[in-house]
Amino acid sequence: MTDNLDATDPRTLPGFFDALADGTLLGGVCTDCEQVLLPPRPACYACGSRAVDVEPQAREGQVFSYTAVHTPPPGFAADAPYTIAVVELADGGRLLGRVAADYADVAIGDSVELTVRELTAAEREVALDYEVDWPVHVFEPR
């Protein structure tokens, strides 16, 4: 089994978000089947292997699918409607995130780049204690 995990290990969420706060997107990469895991985790969902390396991932990618949220959860109401997308990153992993563009200005295949910001005051209010310092990623059109 995996060696002891602690909160500095990027296969845990605190470790992953610490790196993201510094601008580094870390992914797990299965050494058996090469599946990319975002965020990193102790085991590969594709093949079950626990031989997962952690490697920096490209921040550039393309929109795989997208929509806009018109009926937001409380805490996000002031931002609506806002665009979200599933982005296929250049290193092969797929990640969901906000897109800093109007829905009408986005299309499948658009190039985007991952950026990172701190939580807004409204997001802070709905964050759990341990999430307050975790950044949020946003995809910027390129």
């Binding site: 969420l13 992953f16 975002l38 965020p39 795989f64 699918s65 997208y66 929509t67 806009a68 949220v69 009926t71 937001p72 959860p73 996000f76 931002d79 806002y82 979200i84 997308a85 599933v86 990640l95 969901l96 995130g97 906000r98 499948i108 997001e123 964050a127 999430e131 975790w134 949020v136």
Partner: peptide, 24 residues
């Protein structure tokens, strides 16, 4: 929670991502 909820997803928007892809 870590990625999707903190990006502001909802049930309709999650399925909309499937629908957009299906129509494509």
């Amino acid at each position: 929670r870590a990625i999707e909820q903190r990006s502001g997803v909802t049930a309709p928007s999650q399925y909309a991502l499937l629908a957009q892809r299906y129509l494509h």
